[in-house]
Computed example of a mutant assay.
Amino acid sequence: MALPQLLHSPSSSSLTPKHCLNPHSLNPSPSSLSLNPSILSRRRRRNPNFLRCSASSGGSPKSDDVLELPLFPLPLVLFPGAILPLQIFEFRYRMMMHTLLQTDLRFGVIYADSTTGTADVGCVGEVVKHERLVDDRFFLICKGQERFRVTNLVRTKPYLVAEVAWLEDRPSGDGAEDLDALSSEVESYMKDVIRLSNRLNGKPEKEVQELRRNLFPTPFSFFVGSTFEGAPREQQALLELEDTAMRLKREKETLKNTLNYLTAASAVKDVFPTA
């Protein structure tokens, strides 16, 4: 679900998700997948140039763990818990996929564009479904897992491999921050934005279903950020924040600005119905 007409930083790009690098793309809507979130656990390196992941190894990743991870730069931002469809067409990334299928199905998705370059913070994408075609292209459905920060570039060819450290949200500086109340405010703004957008687009007005779906504040903040399609730089800024309260407050402000814009547009439409 993407929120319409998001008002964000003026520097935000108009790039939209679901595009691969250079720019071979796959644009289907992600299928409805019932996936249980998996957690990256602390792992040993079996190959010095690759992150070897094992869902059964037990334990949560530590922020001071440094491991090697193959990277896939894309003009989009992947959030933990989000679903991302991709087409792997370029030869070097087909090579990467062949290696991943033999070792592990996780790689780093990291935002890159011609203006800002390649970001330092990204999100691990786990391949949950894949199809290999006769011409050796791959269709993938990936799910966002842990965030990471690049600490050192190991190699650039045939594809990027970097040392990464896990990134986790830290407790807010204000211990009295009510994250549940803040999450409820953000959800309320989201519902208002969706409702007003549907009205402007001539869609039937109906009650917006629960958006939070019992998510805790941190994963909910990632879900909200994933809906800000068309604003990848704003999404990147949200991904890099290490404070759930700060992320929710920034999302609340963005949604509030968007709601104000849609309210004004709705008023104009009421006065000039054919405008």
Rank of each mutant, 00 (worst) to 15 (best):
R170L: 11
S41W: 00
I110K: 06
A231G: 10
F148T: 06
F79V: 07
K203M: 15
E185M: 07
A181E: 12
V186P: 05
P171N: 00
V164R: 01
S63Y: 08
A245Y: 04
Q102I: 00
W166H: 13
T99R: 08
C20N: 09
E205A: 11
E253R: 09
G173S: 12
L3N: 02
D174G: 01
P10V: 07
D113T: 12
Q236A: 13
F220I: 01
L35C: 12
K203D: 15
Q209M: 08
R45M: 14
R43L: 12
D270L: 08
M97S: 06
L86R: 01
P158F: 01
R45E: 15
P4K: 12
P23Q: 03
V127W: 02
S29E: 10
V164M: 01
T118K: 09
D135N: 15
T254R: 08
D192R: 13
C142I: 13
V121M: 02
L241K: 14
S63L: 06
L182A: 10
S25I: 05
F89N: 05
L200H: 11
L15F: 13
E146M: 07
L3C: 06
S183H: 07
L74Y: 03
S221M: 07
P61N: 07
Y93T: 09
D65M: 11
R92C: 07
R147I: 08
P23E: 00
D65P: 01
V154L: 14
T263P: 02
F228M: 15
I194Y: 07
N201I: 01
D174Y: 05
E126N: 04
T274L: 02
P219E: 06
R44N: 14
S9C: 08
S11L: 11
M96W: 03
R106G: 02
E146K: 09
S60T: 13
K157G: 01
A245P: 08
A119D: 14
H19F: 10
S12A: 13
S13D: 12
G125Y: 01
R44C: 09
R94K: 14
V208A: 04
Y261E: 12
S183P: 06
N36E: 08
T118N: 02
G108I: 07
P232Q: 03
P75Q: 02
E229M: 06
H8G: 10
M97E: 03
T151Y: 00
T115I: 13
P48M: 05
K157M: 04
N152Y: 12
N27F: 10
M97I: 14
G173K: 11
H19Y: 11
R52C: 09
V208L: 03
L40M: 13
S34D: 13
C53L: 07
S114Y: 10
R42M: 04
P17H: 03
R43A: 15
T244A: 02
R155W: 00
E68R: 15
I141A: 14
E90K: 14
V124G: 00
E251F: 07
P28I: 08
L140R: 11
E251R: 01
Y189C: 13
T218A: 10
T274V: 04
N257M: 12
N201W: 06
S38E: 10
L15G: 00
K256I: 00
L86H: 03
E185A: 12
L140K: 09
E251P: 04
P48I: 09
L26R: 03
S11C: 02
R170M: 04
S41M: 04
Q145K: 10
